[in-house]
Design a protein around this nucleic acid. Structure first.
Lengths: 252, 252
DNA sequence: CATTTTAATTGACATTTGTCAATTAAATCA
DNA sequence: TGATTTAATTGACAAATGTCAATTAAAATG
């Protein structure tokens, strides 16, 4: 525990948003201002929050590092404070599928929380990331005590479930151009929220998000470029005709 | 309410398992003996159970009928007492994907409970079905009062979530033979639990479970038959070499 | 039972997509 | 900077899968 605190303190030095006082530490992952998923924690009383955060570990990951690994025991949930991560399902024969890009202020467990307590996918850092690890046992304790909190988590779970259903439908009943369009629109509207957007993602990763090989992705992307739907530069993509992309997505 | 009771009573006449006394009515969907999902309700107190069941409607569906329709408001959850149903995602251009076969003693909501309160998929009866419809508002009430119940629902939700992830992986990174093998094994081991099993499912439906056209499904099935892995009769399929099917499933 | 409708099957073919190999461009490292 | 590794791109080709049309089998209907 001492080491953990030290780790936390050293990490926080180069991050002005996160001081060392207790209050600040809670704030790091759980403030309910401008926080994606973390309003889930907004409903907790200070005591409850404390019981969760008591032994939280704040950890820094470098771009590319694995944050949690598929098939390992699910002992902690993770809150991302800043940075981007990818949620990857590692299939047989090295075939990976990127299910989601996680942004700042999101929480995730890796799948089977409460069910089998194993992680059903891998999460890896795309950029450098600050996140905290929180004991799931603390979480489970809280669930029995605060039903509003349980409901919020249920909502979060159902939400993720429906998003995955959307992914499933996109990937299974669309041809490649539709899937590429989906990926581009997802990145613009749900991840980066700018246009053009710089991407830290390799073509292989974009292909893994679209359920195809990188070669196929590149070709499809090139056709979009030739048709004037998008523009690619070194490490950015600009969507020029969003409506047409939406149409392509819709027609599958 | 009077009409509903009448409906209930007339339905129950030809069903010896379900009497008219209050206790029996609760039993219909919620007994915790030999019940798939419905142990979820086992933890409720009699009062709580009563508050849920108070205005439940028991309804009979004929084979083929739609029980709940995608994109309609999610006002009730459904408990299947007996019979089989299919969970279908209706995609664009009439492309359907069957996500799951639901058996007796299962509960389902159609997707976005608590999140957006719309149904994200259609559920249709495969055989004749007896089921009850229960107000979600009653459910939500209960959630705030009984955290153990919330946790059970959360578990159920996460479980469904992980099953869908499995489906997603099977459908996106396997070739047809692997997907057909998955469908056959799923039917034998998780739905019918006998071998050979009679099936009430059309080839089109089997194809919709496997994410391919019926023609492709038929051809793939025929290859399995020619290789001696399975045997088809009029309306039954027998798995002869399960291990080899598992191998095919694994290799994608 | 004959008729009509629906489901299953088959074949030929076109399209989509993946695979492999070669090449170029970019990034990293000593 | 030059050398080396990694990522991106392209082309040729093969494999997987869907589409369409025709046929047969089965089921439903009157």
């Amino acid at each position: 525990m001492y080491q953990i605190l030290l780790l936390f303190m050293s990490e926080s030095q180069d991050n002005p948003n996160c001081g060392n006082c207790l209050e600040c530490r809670y704030d790091c992952c759980f403030s309910n201002r401008n926080c994606g998923d973390s309003h889930i924690f907004g409903i907790l009383t200070p005591d409850e929050l404390h019981s969760l955060m008591d032994n939280k570990r704040q950890i820094h990951f470098r771009s590319g590092e694995t944050i949690m690994k598929q098939n390992t025991p699910l002992t902690h949930l993770v809150c991302i404070k800043n940075g981007l991560a990818k949620v990857v399902s590692e299939g047989p024969k090295g075939k990976n599928l990127i299910l989601q890009i996680i942004k700042s202020n999101s929480i995730f467990t890796g799948g089977g929380a409460i069910v089998d307590d194993f992680r059903h996918f891998t999460v890896a850092a795309i950029t450098d990331i600050d996140c905290c690890f929180i004991d799931t046992s603390r979480l489970y304790n809280l669930l029995t005590k605060n039903s509003t909190f349980s409901i919020e988590l249920l909502k979060h779970s159902n939400d993720q479930h429906m998003k995955m259903l959307g992914t499933l439908i996109n990937l299974t009943n669309k041809y490649m151009p539709g899937r590429v369009a989906d990926t581009l629109l997802y990145l613009k509207n749900s991840v980066f929220e700018t246009n053009p957007y710089n991407f830290v993602l390799s073509k292989q990763e974009l292909a893994d998000m679209s359920g195809m090989t990188k070669e196929s992705f590149i070709r499809s992307l090139k056709e979009f470029e030739d048709s004037g739907l998008i523009r690619q530069t070194r490490n950015a993509i600009e969507i020029l005709k969003e409506n047409e992309l939406i149409e392509i997505s819709r027609n599958g």
